[in-house]
């Protein structure tokens, strides 16, 4: 029997060969979207697939702008392909404008954060063990007097009752010190945002809801600060939920009371306080 002329390479070899070559980049244009797929190695020498989706838009502009659009690239960009070059043009994270409604923010002294770290008011860190005075126990004037001993223990008790933290030299985190507590309403846990207070979450919205609908729905309750309707990235359709930030908390409470269970576009809305992110 003839043996196959070509010796089939073993699968292990194939894998090895495959290591070197990357699949060729591809570019697909379909229904207004350009999808560019690229492969490359990352820092750990692992293959990475990069998919970029561009939306193609047509705009009507003046003649002079249209003419400039036909200019070819020059300088260091001369070899770039049409369309943004990912090396020089990036889309960064969403950034929203923070509206400042109260003036306290701007009037707060600049170095507030550092104040908490400064030494506390009573800079004396040693204390007499018998009378709690600001001197060494050894040099206590009440030393050896029985009467004073009793008085001293009493004093110690009251000092303890007042709050052990200030009388002991235990480490206290900066934000828990007096300097820290004095500022506003104390520290919020990290990640909590102050404007969450008057924020509500509306869910079970129709897929066809748009921002204008939502605004009509809630603006009767009071002035809004922010309105966010979650949308599918590619289709622009509503994902079914939205967050509304009111300027005032009572308005938000009123909105929850009224809208929860409200029939809107043949769906029953579910409205609740917006919870802070879990992580």
């Amino acid at each position: 029997m003839p043996v196959a002329d070509e010796i089939q390479s073993s699968w292990a070899d194939e894998v090895e060969i495959d290591q070197g070559a990357l699949p060729p980049p591809s570019e697909v244009v379909e229904n207004g979207l350009k999808i560019v797929t690229e492969y490359k190695y990352d820092n750990d020498n692992k293959k990475v697939k990069i998919v970029r989706t561009y939306k193609i838009e047509k705009r009507v502009v003046s003649k002079s702008i249209a003419k400039r659009k036909t200019w070819s690239k020059f300088g260091d960009s001369a070899s770039d392909k049409p369309g943004p070059n990912p090396a020089t043009t990036m889309v960064s994270e969403d950034v929203f404008m923070q509206f400042i409604t109260s003036k306290e923010e701007s009037t707060r002294p600049d170095d507030g954060e550092l104040d908490g770290l400064k030494p506390q008011a009573s800079s004396v860190i040693f204390k007499c063990r018998t009378c709690q005075g600001e001197h060494w126990t050894l040099s206590c004037p009440f030393k050896n007097t029985q009467l004073a001993q009793a008085k001293a223990s009493e004093a110690a008790k009251t000092a303890d009752a007042k709050g052990g933290a200030s009388s002991t030299n235990k480490y206290v985190a900066p934000f828990m010190r007096d300097g820290g507590a004095g500022r506003g309403m104390g520290r919020e846990p990290p990640g909590a945002r102050r404007d969450d207070i008057a924020a509500i979450r509306i869910s079970n919205l129709s897929n066809f809801a748009i921002e204008a609908d939502l605004e009509d729905l809630v603006k009767g309750f009071g002035p809004l600060q922010k309105l966010y309707l979650a949308k599918e990235k590619s289709t622009g359709q509503c994902k079914g939920f939205a967050y509304v930030h009111f300027k005032f908390k009572p308005d938000a409470a009123k909105a929850i009371q009224t809208l929860n269970g409200y029939g809107y576009d043949h769906l029953i809305l579910n409205v609740e306080w917006s919870k802070p992110p879990q992580n």
């Binding site: 690239k73 020059f74 369309g83 943004p84 020089t88 043009t89």
Partner: peptide, 11 residues
């Protein structure tokens, strides 16, 4: 300015 594409550099 619309899409951030670089037209060129002036060397």
């Amino acid at each position: 300015s619309l899409n951030g594409e670089r037209l060129g550099t002036f060397n």
